[in-house]
């Protein structure tokens, strides 16, 4: 291997495509299907270049027919292939969820482990660009709640490549959720901090392992995808006030690395969880409960910064008002300090 010292910054979209291409080169069983993932390269850019390199058999555009092709992914995976299937927007899960949660997620269990279903379902999440209530949701908890699927959601290109590689090699179904605003597509608004150095060689990020992206001692801010970036921004502002925040990127929802979170909160005594998914019955509640039920000594009641329990509104001022951001995290911290 050559010495890779040169910084090579990639977007999450490019990193995903690179991981897929590298796995397709070494494993004939890997193929991609979904809507507009062929010559177009995916509406979010994450299959760009694959069609030219691998052709229409292995990079196949589907009809707008999620029920059929999601079911087909289950059947192909059960028969020894390793399909990567794209659900263009996670919001579209409603038209094909039976194939996902009644088959993809359960066939291994129903077969006593005899049938493997190594599907990677990649799907876009998140809002912030006024696409309203059917194209802007995250639905992290909807997928993470149901047993039988691993669920990952990267916040930067380095993790995106490593998680995609791990997902393709995993013998279980993996839901790979990528946030649109982190994709590096200009037209969706781009989070610069998601574009990071990505090694050219192949590597895995272990599924089920969180990352402490910034160390600190006074408060633990836990998030995923966009929430990690809000957390990092809040941490910078808090640092100016002499508050040392630790920021954790869970990276995997299933399995959830509770240990890393609990160890951090044992150290800081304060917990804020950030999630762009809906407030109630979600990731924030799960993480706070996981800490509280371990009896971790807390200096203040935990807080959550999540999407209100409303369909996502279209009007730009309304949507921006509803989204989590760094200011809301700082406000949450201030409230903890008051009590």
């Amino acid at each position: 291997m050559s010495v890779a010292t040169k910084e090579r910054k990639l977007t999450i979209a490019r990193a995903m495509a690179e991981a897929i291409a590298q796995e397709m080169r070494i494993d004939e069983r890997v193929f991609v299907m979904g809507e507009d993932i062929g010559p177009l390269g995916g509406v979010f850019g994450n299959t760009r270049g694959l069609f030219d390199e691998f052709g229409a058999e292995r990079v196949r555009d589907t009809p707008i027919s999620e029920t059929a092709f999601m079911g087909a992914a289950v059947g192909a995976a059960s028969d020894g292939m390793r399909p990567i299937v794209e659900l263009m927007f996670v919001d579209f899960f409603g038209v094909c969820f039976d194939a996902i949660y009644n088959s993809m997620a359960k066939n291994t269990y129903f077969s006593g482990g005899e049938v493997k279903v190594p599907v990677v379902l990649m799907t876009s999440t998140g809002g912030g660009y006024s696409d309203a209530g059917q194209h802007s949701q995250c639905l992290h908890a909807t997928f993470a709640h149901l047993p039988g699927m691993k669920v990952v959601a990267p916040s930067n290109a380095y993790d995106a490549k490593g998680l995609m590689t791990a997902a393709i090699r995993d013998d279980n179904p993996v839901i790979f959720m990528f946030h649109k605003a982190l994709q590096g597509m200009g037209w969706l608004g781009t989070e610069r901090d998601a574009i990071v150095h990505v090694p050219e060689e192949s590597y895995e990020i272990p599924i089920g392992k969180a990352a402490v992206v910034k160390e600190g001692t006074d408060v633990t801010i836990v998030g995923l995808t966009s929430g990690v970036h809000h957390g990092l921004k809040a941490a910078r502002t808090l640092a100016e006030r002499g508050v040392s925040a630790e920021v954790i990127d869970i990276r995997s929802l299933v399995p959830l690395d509770r240990e890393t979170i609990i160890n951090s909160v044992k150290k800081t005594g304060r917990l804020i969880v950030v999630d762009e998914d809906y407030h109630s019955y979600g990731v924030t509640g799960e993480i706070i409960t996981s800490v509280v039920e371990q009896g971790v000594a807390l200096k203040a009641a935990p807080k959550r910064v999540a999407y209100p329990d409303i369909p996502i509104p279209f009007a730009r001022p309304m949507e921006q008002w509803a989204l989590p951001n760094a200011e809301k995290i700082i406000t949450a911290f201030e409230l903890m300090e008051k009590n």
Partner: peptide, 23 residues
Amino acid sequence: SCSGIIAQGMGPAVGAALSRKLQ
């Protein structure tokens, strides 16, 4: 294999057929 959900074995059959064709 079989499924207790009406018509939901059809997509998997299509996918298994695709698998045979690809391989």
